[in-house]
């Protein structure tokens, strides 16, 4: 376990040493979203009865920040190690592929949690929030960050350069998070786009996470949790198989 814990600690220290970029920057960006959208739409949009728009927005933004930063953590760390060649420091020691996986995913969850906590606490300055089902909130938060942490590993294993990595982030991760109901309830969409939204796993993460705050959601939280857990297992399995095979790591 020492190897796994060391790699986890190294990954924590890596993002913490550049916390202006990895924590403060996404915090400020997310708060700008909150400031602008809540100011513009507060009096125009009512999603759930008894929940004003700003309160509705905060959990979505918290989750979006967590997901994007969890993905960034594992993907940026691994792609940098691959590009600079210092990945050999992790490949030469007797670390098992699953230890590699656990350490990187756990660090992604940690960074997601730090950023999410920051956004959440800052959101309290805008609107008071209560937690109707904290364990549900926690389950979706951890699973969401873990899914994106695993996705970050897969993307960075696949990418041969920073450009390909940025393409995954900008053309897949960001659209999926933005189109997952962060800023709106999917019930406000036309039927076709509602159906499309149901194919987006990020929608279930946001919806389930929001259920933890308000006790209301677009779909059943149990269904959302089942879909999210299945996604996590599938992505974890794929990541573990890639790591075990040495895909683009061990020539």
């Amino acid at each position: 376990m020492t190897g796994l814990l060391t790699l986890f600690y190294k990954e924590l220290l890596r993002f913490w040493k550049v916390s202006l970029q990895t924590v403060l920057s996404p915090l400020v960006t997310t708060l700008l979203y909150l400031l602008i959208f809540s100011h513009v739409l507060e009096s125009h949009v009512q999603v759930y009865s008894e929940v004003n728009y700003t309160a509705f927005l905060v959990p979505g933004l918290v989750m979006m920040a967590m997901l994007q930063n969890a993905f960034s953590n594992s993907s940026s760390s691994l792609i940098q190690s691959k590009m600079t060649g210092n990945i050999v420091f992790m490949l030469l020691p007797p670390l098992a592929y699953w230890e590699f996986f656990v350490a990187y995913v756990a660090a992604s969850v940690a960074r997601g949690a730090v950023v999410g906590l920051g956004v959440g606490l800052a959101g309290l300055w805008f609107v008071p929030l209560t937690l109707a089902h904290p364990l549900w909130m926690l389950a979706f938060a951890v699973l969401g960050c873990a899914i994106l942490g695993a996705a970050g590993i897969i993307a960075s294993l696949w990418a041969d350069n920073y450009d390909q990595m940025a393409a995954v982030q900008n053309f897949i991760i960001v659209p999926l998070t933005f189109l997952s109901g962060v800023f709106y309830s999917i019930h406000s969409l036309p039927p076709f786009w509602q159906a499309v939204s149901h194919a987006n796993p990020f929608f279930y993460l946001i919806d389930g996470f929001r259920y933890g705050f308000f006790g209301v959601s677009d779909v059943s939280p149990l269904l959302a949790l089942t879909i999210v857990a299945t996604c996590f297992l599938a992505l974890s399995l794929a990541t573990l198989l890639l790591l075990k095979s040495g895909y683009k790591l061990r020539k």
Partner: peptide, 19 residues
């Protein structure tokens, strides 16, 4: 090769831990 984020001692501590 080296990891730009860390000091010499940190690198050696991590490498020890990996082993």
């Amino acid at each position: 090769v080296y990891d730009a984020f860390f000091t010499v001692r940190e690198m050696l501590r991590f490498q020890s831990g990996y082993f």
